[in-house]
Design a protein around this nucleic acid. Sequence first.
DNA 1: TTGTAGGCGTTATCAT
DNA 2: ATGATAACGCCTACAA
Lengths: 352, 352
Amino acid sequence: MDEAAKMKGPVRIRMARRSVSGPKMIDVAKVAGVSAITVSRVLKTPEKVSPKTREKVKRAMADVGYIRNLVAGSLASACSQVIGIVVPAITNSLFADTVEGLINVIRPHGYQIIIGLTRYDVEEEEDIVRAFLGQRVEAMVLTGTTHSEATRKMLSRTSAPVIEMWAMTDDPIDTVIGFSNFEAARQMTLYLIGSGYRRIAYLGGLTNNNDRTSQRLAGYEMALSEAGLTFPDSYKRSPVFDFREGGRAIRRLLEAHPEIDAVFAASDVLAVGAIQECTRQGWVVPDRVAVAGLDDSIIALEMVPPLTTVRIPRYQIGEVIGNELLHRLCDPSREVNHIIDLGFKIIPRAST
Amino acid sequence: MDEAAKMKGPVRIRMARRSVSGPKMIDVAKVAGVSAITVSRVLKTPEKVSPKTREKVKRAMADVGYIRNLVAGSLASACSQVIGIVVPAITNSLFADTVEGLINVIRPHGYQIIIGLTRYDVEEEEDIVRAFLGQRVEAMVLTGTTHSEATRKMLSRTSAPVIEMWAMTDDPIDTVIGFSNFEAARQMTLYLIGSGYRRIAYLGGLTNNNDRTSQRLAGYEMALSEAGLTFPDSYKRSPVFDFREGGRAIRRLLEAHPEIDAVFAASDVLAVGAIQECTRQGWVVPDRVAVAGLDDSIIALEMVPPLTTVRIPRYQIGEVIGNELLHRLCDPSREVNHIIDLGFKIIPRAST
DNA sequence: TTGTAGGCGTTATCAT
DNA sequence: ATGATAACGCCTACAA
């Protein structure tokens, strides 16, 4: 089975660079009795080749089992057909929806994506961006607007489109596609206030280097101040986004502040954990305490009671980015909208 | 802001191939007063360059903002540093864990992954495999062992390692890394029987072209026949993996067969949907009906009651694949284990 | 419609 | 330790 490996043999005058590398265009061309460029054309612009030749070439490709080397193509054409996307995580993560939306849009056009995971770390992000630019990705998609200085510098130098997503800003590196986390949290808080709740606690995630969680917290605080409400700081908790943490946090909140009548969790994961804990404790939702989330993740509707939450365009973000990039990559001179706000929607359900 | 875009200007004699393409090795080399190959060596084998030269080169790279073109490197060295992974989906999917495990292991070694999504369609898989081989991935990772003929042919021809995962087989294309879905379902069914349940229904997914769901169904059936149990076919349902479907399915099952005392869902998603439906209907789990799942997804433990399930090594599959590939890519002559069974574990909780 | 020539930016090989 | 040169396999530009 490993015969080939043993054939490294004695050094010859200028040894072949590689043992085997499969048939190339020129091999197909020979079989078909045409030139290499014709094979290339059959692949990229078949309409420029006569049907007869096209058939000959196609048969030859099938005969030799040709698979075109896109690496060589990338080098020659400066088009890698690869888009880089950088997200904090994809496990139990809503970013997975966005990634899937993007893939589904661009794959039919021959583009691939490479994924980088930052684990919410800007240094990791920097490494990934450097690696991706080295791979000559044709576009970079990043989560959020918080980046290291070096990252910003690299990204502003590249001629490839750079999309920041899942956020809003007036000043994107290139283009931002997402929604306002600030407004989403603010509107939900206002909705809770409008529903008559007066003691509204907040469960957020870690806010360091995370514009999304910071903005959500700011939105909550803004809504309170608009309504003239003030609470002790201990109304705000920052558990990481995790079911258990949501349960623990609501338990502590209600122990410390029995007067709390609503909890706004800036992530459905926390909200779900909170509701489940209430179920375990026998606290009726929403009578004892209302619970609202943010995400409208798939589990929100399955809760008993179903979770009031904010629907965010996770999948759509990926799709819109994909379409935007396809257009821009086809026509670099195209006029582009650098700020695309896809909005969000309050989804009232029985948990409030 | 778009000044640059307007500068395409009049066509010149032999226009530059690309507007801008950033500094290259040769540019760095000039600045550092060395040759291009030395710059290359600083990047790949710094120990072969004198410390003095190395510093000069590094400074020059920083000065000009050099980012190495890995596409050209891939072509020259026949090493793309890219691994392809093909999964049915990553949205609300356990495969995301595996992808993340793989990325976390290989990224520190400079490898990237490109992801393909089949949506459980072997034709899609075939397209993706062709595209990935074209990208000259250094390894292919596929979900399951069911592939089209063309896919098998392409994969058996390639010299790159091919890993099939999330399944077990005696006859992998190259290497299989996963666990036995058959055994997992069989053991869980036996566990339920051992717990005293005698009317055990089954909720599976679609089984066409999906070796994982087929195997699970077969495992359930095997356990029943071992225990001498026979049920009408309507004890088995094949809803797609979705919360709502789980709820609907258990409702119909219990309406049609009130004697059912346990439901084994071959996916936690279905089991969770079933439990939530029971909660809504006021059917106490496990007294009225026991519910067991398969996956040990993050939500299983959060259920009220917590879900009895089968823990499968989702994340570990990715890690093991990563390590395996790193070893093999470094040393292609290395002896390899072509069948790696990572096992599973029954996790008894309060839902049964 | 088809072919020829040359280059894409790096790395392997061989030489110094 | 460093450099000159020739691939790597394809694609753009231009020619026929």
